[in-house]
Design a protein around this nucleic acid. Structure first.
Lengths: 202, 202
DNA sequence: TGTACATCAGTGAACGCGCGTTCACTGATGTAC
DNA sequence: TGTACATCAGTGAACGCGCGTTCACTGATGTAC
């Protein structure tokens, strides 16, 4: 009998690899990525502590897979935000909101994604996953330049980086907590508005 | 004989507390805060692994002291930047540059400061140290509002937060690496200019 | 359809490791008389 | 100035702990004839 691709519980555990990743995601959300241990992940997945080695070469391989998945989630989330708008300017603002929203709703994943020191990436697959997320923003910036919302004379990457810096900084501050007492929604709107129009009086 | 406040090597170690903090700072720079161990800190300071307990109740007390010190460095650095300018607008821009500069030159401290999950702060002293750094920015924003550079109708904290978000995001991206290949100086200038004038075409 | 065999995905004991922390101790420093 | 004592800041052995990883194994699954 061939093993079905999914939802099969007949062949040993079934799909232990996915179960381990899921358990690792939960555990990371609870204790943070730096307190994640392979043994606890195995415990949560209901297998012995040696079982993960059938699916991941070592602990680093698991966290790497975790990072790629998390970047994938972010990329999808940003793509959905863009797809909801025909107007490039609205799409751009939607990306910003989605970015901060993702961080607020998935704080552990957001934190983890950008801590390069916490995960090995010899293969570069995590970096490539990050590029895909950035690509969504860059494309939208270019569309905005085409329709004149953003200046076409400025380098697209520079505009994208500025937008990213602002939303990333806001997301980081909100997630890591120095100013958690703020009205979140109003703050996001205000910061994005300032990003568009500038800080200075006019 | 009284023990002099500093530079004395006569009384046992002399000033082990400072030596431990210094060693911890170096070690953090090398391996990151999450790989910092009390035993290695003691090793570097040239004392036994139990000696630190004469100066810090436990490991958390040491990292807390480290965080307060790091925030103090940042605050001083920002104050120096502000003090160099009479024009509030120039002072504001200088803060932004100083903030990113601090992050680039002290990456491990910068990272550590904003990882609340990595250090306990029951006493709130770390939070208070953070407030002092934020205070420098807030004061400058208020000066800018007084002279009309920034709109006085907008809440000072909101303006400060927006400025902080942008510079913090830029600093984070530059320090944590997703886009390290960029021309750093030019990028900082471009981002700060956009922060002032806005992303949109005009 | 049945049997022999290969493979695959688990188990559980064991390894060495370095950690944070405690403890009884020691020796240097400061102080009272 | 000298001596007895208290205190302070170190030492080094020991503790229990949980970790990542390895290994020989077992039992279920799939496959050739």
């Amino acid at each position: 009998m061939m093993c079905p691709m999914s939802t099969s519980k007949t062949y040993h555990h079934g799909n232990l690899r996915q179960a381990l990743l899921e358990a690792a995601r939960e555990l990371t959300a609870e204790v943070g990525i730096e307190a994640l241990t392979l043994r606890e992940v195995a415990r949560r997945a209901g297998v012995s502590h040696a079982a993960p080695y059938n699916h991941f070469a070592d602990k680093a391989a698991l966290t790497r897979a975790l990072a790629v998945e998390a970047f994938g989630s972010l990329t999808n989330f940003l793509r959905l935000a863009v797809a909801a708008h025909l107007d490039p300017a609205k799409a751009l603002k939607a990306i910003g909101q989605a970015y901060v929203g993702f961080a607020l709703h998935n704080p552990s994943e957001f934190r983890f994604i950008f801590r390069e020191d916490l995960r090995s990436d010899e293969t570069g697959e995590v970096a490539r996953a990050g590029e895909r997320a950035y690509g969504v923003l860059l494309e939208t910036v270019k569309h905005c330049q085409e329709v004149g919302v953003l200046p076409s004379s400025t380098d697209s990457n520079l505009l994208a980086l500025t937008a990213w810096s602002t939303t990333h900084g806001l997301a980081t501050l909100l997630v890591n907590g120095p100013r958690q007492e703020l009205e979140v929604e109003a703050t996001i709107d205000a910061v994005l508005h300032t990003l568009q129009q500038g800080l200075y009086s006019r």
